[in-house]
Design a protein around this nucleic acid. Sequence first.
DNA 1: CGTTTTTCTTACCGATGAGTAAGATATCAA
DNA 2: TTGATATCTTACTCATCGGTAAGAAAAACG
Lengths: 221, 221
Amino acid sequence: MQARLHLKAFVNRRRDPDSKREAVLQIAVRLFLERGFWRTSLTDVAAKLNITKPALYHYFHNKEEIYLECYRRGISLIQESLELLQRHAGSGLEKLTAFIYNYAVVIASDFGRCVVRQDDRELSARARTEVRSYKRQVDRSIRAFIEEGVSDGTIRACNVKLAAFSIAGAVNSMALWFEPRGPSSAEEVAAEFARTLTQGIARRRDNKFRLPGIVFLSSER
Amino acid sequence: MQARLHLKAFVNRRRDPDSKREAVLQIAVRLFLERGFWRTSLTDVAAKLNITKPALYHYFHNKEEIYLECYRRGISLIQESLELLQRHAGSGLEKLTAFIYNYAVVIASDFGRCVVRQDDRELSARARTEVRSYKRQVDRSIRAFIEEGVSDGTIRACNVKLAAFSIAGAVNSMALWFEPRGPSSAEEVAAEFARTLTQGIARRRDNKFRLPGIVFLSSER
DNA sequence: CGTTTTTCTTACCGATGAGTAAGATATCAA
DNA sequence: TTGATATCTTACTCATCGGTAAGAAAAACG
């Protein structure tokens, strides 16, 4: 990776704010992923870049702004995918399947994982509002694909909201375990998820589903 | 709920450590869910109970122990479900479906959500080891159900590890949005998830799956 | 070369929160 | 009632970390 490059962005005082800002983001997002937002101090970030904490304040107003920039990068990748799919003609099921694939690939990237891994509640009210509006947008898109599929007959009738949550939840969870240098590539995982989440894993000989009778837990405990 | 009861556990100095410990856990888990572990101070917990922070140290060694107790409660619910399923005869698919249902109901409870919502990395090495060993156990069980299903022909051949992650991820995500007083009951969500995650949402006229050609993102960005 | 501007450092503030020391006070058992 | 014990409080320590003030040093510019 060009991580080496970013680590050397501050070797001298050359005036190049753009690439220095970039270096901060690249290093920060790695640390946020490694340790979480609150456990990552700006002193840590600065140390990795061989500068001191106050230097960061020449490029960002505060810690949250650094995170928000990382977040916006991830979101813009997702939006890019959504726009392409919305222009594309195809059945609801095809769009949904393609979206799951693309979304999974995004979530596998550093900035993508950053989008999902962060807990809203740790943000200011202002930032939280921004973040949640993006999330709603993604959710609306997934639901639209599903509804389209139900209309055109490629998706069976189901609880659209819960189906969307289930799909988003499964893909989002990648952020918790996916490792770029791990055994499966992003594309492998994306393909498997796209298949599993649309087609299921059951070998369906018949089309009727019933809940097994061995269910026993109730939420009353 | 009996939250009122727990709020009154410390009205006098009656010697009843068991119910006082219980009250601490019940109030703590709510706050952990509301604000997250690190954003919840022991002063907050104590205030809700009408005592002061040092009083908590009569019942728990430190903050992490309080969290771990909450965690163990959630885990024991899951284990209870697993044991029952392992004793039960049935196809792999049936067991998996039933597990998804039961697991979802557990995750919908306060202690269940606590299990999932907490980020390992915020724990000590010791606690993290304990927590992860539980998680591995759940993962192994899901995989075993899937493998059983593949053997007995009720589940199609698939990447077992990724399928298990996908299912666990979807159910775990409930912890992030499920609200006991929300529009859907735990049982409703559990049933829908059990269905969606095993049968998929596609209306399958034929059995072949192909990735739509509109996929465009690569992880190289 | 000298002036201006940007970049970055040292030294600090203030707030927060986990955990402790020491002692006051209520409960309980005899 | 009284002594022993558990319970809980006040007052504190210590460490962390976001953010700031003030100025030094390097770079850019003319």
